[in-house]
Design a protein around this nucleic acid. Sequence first.
DNA 1: AGGTTTTTGTTGCGTATGCAACAATAATCT
DNA 2: AGATTATTGTTGCATACGCAACAAAAACCT
Lengths: 158, 158
Amino acid sequence: MKPNPLPDSHLFAWRKYYVSFWRVFAAIEADLAAAGLPSLSWYDALYELYLAPGRHLRMNELARSALLSRSGLTRLVDKLEKEKLIERRSCPADRRVQHAQLTDKGVDVLRKIWPVYRAGIAQYFAVHLSAAEARELEKTLAKVAEAFALAETPPQKA
Amino acid sequence: MKPNPLPDSHLFAWRKYYVSFWRVFAAIEADLAAAGLPSLSWYDALYELYLAPGRHLRMNELARSALLSRSGLTRLVDKLEKEKLIERRSCPADRRVQHAQLTDKGVDVLRKIWPVYRAGIAQYFAVHLSAAEARELEKTLAKVAEAFALAETPPQKA
DNA sequence: AGGTTTTTGTTGCGTATGCAACAATAATCT
DNA sequence: AGATTATTGTTGCATACGCAACAAAAACCT
């Protein structure tokens, strides 16, 4: 940990990354709340289920995708289930496992949130980026995100 | 709001931005907690005071810089004051105003946090960026952040 | 098979944080 | 000056979230 190479260029990049993210995130959350819609954590969970084959995922998988702890996800799924946006389903093959299954009503809510979310992304974030900058940003941050995806895979024998 | 131009390139950039940020943020927070250090919100507030002329700021200003609501900042300052990292000082010129004044002990804590924070930035974020990418990222996200700085300034008459 | 270890989801608890309401004070407008 | 309005920081309340402990179930060992 001694070499710790953090040149100014990278530190400055971090500061902008950090500040800009919180500002954009707060602005989008405020827009959602003002529209009487659920917050982004609901969207994230519902959307991950929407993408999943069969529109269902194990709690554990969903927690990872939705960027939550397992306990946090349990609470979130409690609320989503109370609103009938998902259903919990036991897994016959492994009786420890619960699946969260997206309902049609869940898809509806997803479709209600998206226009406001999209407008927020456009207004607070995308409007400042050229197409080239967007592609560059995606490429760069993909590497940052990817490192965590790899870390989730335990080291293989070979 | 109808045109709403959000091309795929920008949407993909947003997804990477969003996911990578949460992952990096959580990893750094975990490192700080593991080292028995306070969380980033403490660092943010102390650091903004450190940068400020005279090492003090009004509560309102500090809330903005530290990315917190006024009430959130009040609670944070309560804790910082209890640990003697800052002092509250009334302002004679405007008796509504309180200043948060960084103490020497506050500077010490800042210096204790920074190595762990820096290592986290380096390890989870900076290591994936070339110098050119870092500069590009900073330039791009500066525009995103700057829009909010401008929005804070109420529209001028002219 | 029988005992240990790991994994899975849930719960108790503590903490962080925002919104709306509030009191004190300052600024603004006749 | 006097009345109204705006600003500042704080508080009550509600909510969201993580960690550690837990029970149930599976996987893994001899």
